[in-house]
Design a protein around this nucleic acid. Structure first.
Lengths: 187, 187
DNA sequence: GCCACGGTTGACAGTTATGACAGGTTAAAT
DNA sequence: ATTTAACCTGTCATAACTGTCAACCGTGGC
């Protein structure tokens, strides 16, 4: 069963060092998404919504809540890429792995990773199509995308134009890849 | 075998991030419908009642409970198949449409359809791979799958063996397709 | 039979919602 | 520079809801 972790106004208030009254006002103003319990109308805030609220307002994200924001979905069927998984885990990331585009899609939607590492060499994946789709849907607006370019890539810029946040060559060093992923996750 | 799914107070509580005591109070106040077991008077909540309670109170519905009963995800890029969409809508179905496997995956996971109509002629889709993945994940255990077989299909049985609930030829009549979908949805 | 597990109940402590009010900040108007 | 208004935030008291705790009871496994 899915453990939906939610916060009360008091918890959210303590996390950002304000009075809970203020948190309620943020909610009333529509700045922070929340729902109400039927009883007295207590507010409950999904951690996910809270974290994106903090980010939108350049507020510090508590480490224990930000852990979920270091989740990476790695989409590739190449053994070398998959070997990079361990490096990412050592770097403190949670890593989901998909080796075809259909399951990649399901894992993206259900696992809610903060980053997608997409190997455009994967058979049946059209990187441009995927980027188009991601960028046209608001639910993925905060998703970072690192594109692993085809072997023969001559013009990496076109991927950036299509919406990728970074492009790396498939042949690039794994440590370099992990370094860039880390940089994006911390940004 | 049709599994009548019910929740205990503890499960319902975890689903909406409150204490089980609170769930019992909602039931006592008549806000949440439930029945009692004869023994100690344990509460049991039908998933259906729980979901409509959540909806009534604008509370988030957990993905694994929210599956719509007449929602179909149509995965194809063939104009004829897409034309079948209207027929399905006329038959009272809600229809999502995906034309590539990646977005099909995202829509399957986020849209929670009751049925997947998968065109195996779609480029980049390996029907067997998809069926394997679906049947190995419990979150999709209740999903019906209608497979639209390749043009040259000689042995439809192998799709059924792989986990499809029905197989139709790509050339088959649209009305027949809709009829079979309806049958499965009502089952 | 015995035990672990999970659910119930009641009492009580802890939290939260609400409205009103006061102090602080910002920005525009004088 | 000063004033003013608008706004945000914290505080308070009250009422109501929610969580916690302990004791107890069915159920199923050993």
């Amino acid at each position: 069963m899915s453990e939906v972790h939610v916060l009360t106004t008091g918890e959210a208030a303590r996390y950002c060092g304000v009075n809970f009254r203020t948190v309620i006002r943020w909610i009333e103003r529509g700045q922070l998404k929340a729902y109400k319990l039927p009883g007295r109308g207590d507010h409950r805030i999904c951690v996910e919504d809270f974290v994106s609220f903090l980010r939108d307002n350049a507020m510090p994200v508590p480490a224990e809540l930000g852990a979920a924001t270091r989740k990476v979905l790695l989409v590739s069927d190449s053994p070398e890429m998959i070997a990079g998984r361990q490096l990412l885990q050592q770097a403190g990331c949670e890593v989901d792995l998909a080796s075809d585009s259909f399951s990649a899609g399901t894992m993206l939607a259900s696992g809610k990773p903060a980053m997608l590492v997409l190997d455009s060499n994967l058979e049946g994946v059209n990187g441009f199509q995927v980027l188009d789709m991601l960028r046209s849907r608001s639910e993925f607006s905060s998703l970072s995308v690192v594109l692993v370019a085809p072997q023969d890539e001559a013009n990496p810029q076109r991927w950036l134009d299509a919406g990728a946040d970074a492009v790396v060559a498939a042949s690039c060093d794994r440590n370099e890849l992990v370094g860039r992923i880390n940089l994006l996750l911390d940004a």
